[in-house]
Design a binder for these strands. Structure first.
Lengths: 156, 156
DNA sequence: CACAACTACATTGTGCACAATATAATTGCG
DNA sequence: CGCAATTATATTGTGCACAATGTAGTTGTG
């Protein structure tokens, strides 16, 4: 029960560090569970998106995860090497690369969906508390992103 | 006011993705501000720890940030190359490398400490709400880490 | 049709993040 | 003291993350 926190007090007061640190803690908690499926956390998120809606394009995956092509392209390529997805140029638009689950990739869904439940048990928080936290974080991320988007184009 | 969210609904329901995504959003929001100081976000955190308590050892920095030596060592080396810190072996124990702010590194404190305030303005959240979120995240991270630490050693 | 502007991905380079391993200094124990 | 275990950092290798750039394929305009 002793939480021996060797953080500088100043860091512990910063919300941004709490966010950064909690995110890595949760991913670290998932790591051994994902290892058993041969996945990293970002790879798991890509599969989660595909289990929800197979056949997304590389760019659509990037939008969903808020990651750019420099991250998603090689990530999907590693999933393909692992035999979990296939990449195809099949739509009328030959630039689009759509990503499709293989049988092996689809088969991981059942086990994969168990994993996020483990965080509930480890967090000492109720479902309501976790959902409230999630909603706050989604609102935070949404409003922060509004302030980032370099005024892409004056809607004239 | 239109938050055009192109996330898969399933991802948006996952607390772990909200955490991961919000963390990256906030760091992305900081990036242009930190660029003006020539810093990355982890480098900024190291300086924050040193502003709080100069002369920490590499290992103590790692404990504070929950990062291991493979991350901290090269990170501190880059800060040294940038002329913001010095590394010294000076204590009785020649294995310890302590990290000390240079004048340039200390001089960044005033500007640096302004940066986290910007998140308050971008987040549309009150100070109370942000502090509450921070406390929840610290509690979450603490309890999740308790479940990770491979039972390092039975306190006998 | 020609061709410039645009779009969707991919590639390159830098900097984390972490596991595994290496190296050197220190401590403990006979 | 001598030497095995321990400790503090550093190094290596893999995989994100993102900026900047490259490259096909597509669209719009004269």
């Amino acid at each position: 029960m002793v939480v021996d926190v060797n953080e500088e007090p100043r860091l512990r007061e910063m919300a941004c560090f709490a966010l950064y640190s909690a995110s890595r803690a949760v991913i670290g908690f998932y790591r051994p569970l994902l290892d058993r499926l041969g996945l990293t956390y970002p790879q798991f998120l890509v599969l989660m998106a595909l289990w929800d809606s197979d056949g997304l394009a590389v760019g659509e995956l990037g939008e969903s995860l808020h990651l750019d092509s420099g991250t998603v392209s090689p990530l999907v390529k590693r999933l393909e090497t692992a035999g979990l997805v296939e990449r195809r140029r099949e739509s009328g638009d030959e630039r689009r690369v759509t990503v499709h689950l293989t049988e092996a990739g689809a088969a991981l869904e059942e086990e994969g969906c168990e994993i996020p439940l483990a965080i509930g048990r480890a967090s000492k928080m109720s479902i309501e508390e976790i959902n409230g936290l999630r909603d706050q974080l989604n609102r935070l991320a949404d409003s922060v992103r509004e302030h980032i988007d370099p005024p892409k184009k004056e809607t004239p």
